[in-house]
Amino acid sequence: MMCLAVPGEVLDIDGSIAMVDMAGVKRRVCIDLLAEVHPGDYVLVHVGFALQIIDEQEAQETLKLLRACFQEDLHAAVGSQQEGD
């Protein structure tokens, strides 16, 4: 049990407070721990604070990479099965 943090989208910013949407649930979140944050950014929210901006590009790339490996293997598996037939 340590540190439940949830990704959410920054909707708007007012000083040190941002309204963040976490799967349809909105809350005012303190952004003082971040140097810079903009509406549209995804941040990691823990106990009402934004801890870090989530690197969406990095997230997408790693997912893509994983899915690519997965697809490759799937094709290979399907291919070898067909050969077997």
Partner: peptide, 13 residues
């Protein structure tokens, strides 16, 4: 789950 029920569950654990 409805999306926001999901949300509140994730946020509050």
């Amino acid at each position: 789950l409805q999306e926001d029920v999901r949300g509140i569950c994730e946020v509050l654990g």
